[in-house]
Design a protein around this nucleic acid. Sequence first.
DNA 1: GCCAACGTTGGC
DNA 2: GCCAACGTTGGC
Length: 156
Amino acid sequence: MRYWLMKSEPSAYSIGDLETAGTDHWDGIRNYQARNLMRDEMKAGDRVLFHHSSTEVVGVVGTAIVSRGAYPDHTSWDPESKYFDPKSSPDNVRWVMVDLTFESRFAETVTLAEMRAMPALEHMRVIKKGQRLSIQPVTAKEFKAVVAHAKKKAGG
DNA sequence: GCCAACGTTGGC
DNA sequence: GCCAACGTTGGC
């Protein structure tokens, strides 16, 4: 089983949206590195740190589980979609998505500043400047350290 | 809103 | 295949 960090702008899709949906597809990934990770590495059962970016409090806000591995992102051949890519079609799938199932929502965000201060997370990509990749592998140790920190902040 | 960092595009 | 220009991301 692998562990991941997935970024989302909460104005577009938040942890609350995933909590409401229960399970949802993660469409709109249009970056080759992120796509390759989804297509080649991400499997059902993997665990995900759900990260809010471009917002007032940036950081990890909860966890999710990959409930379906990579399959074609149909928004890529939908001319009405903002994620439309004319080079993608059902016969020539360029972009993929996965399904995520809500697991937990932290009482408080584990902020970027807090993560930077945690020795266990010193190698995490998300804390590095200029790191734009929206899907990042994390280690089991990092995943657990973030979850433990969230519990500690919640007072237990 | 600024701007650094990065990915993509396209001329050559 | 190089690399400058451009567009996007995302913290601050």
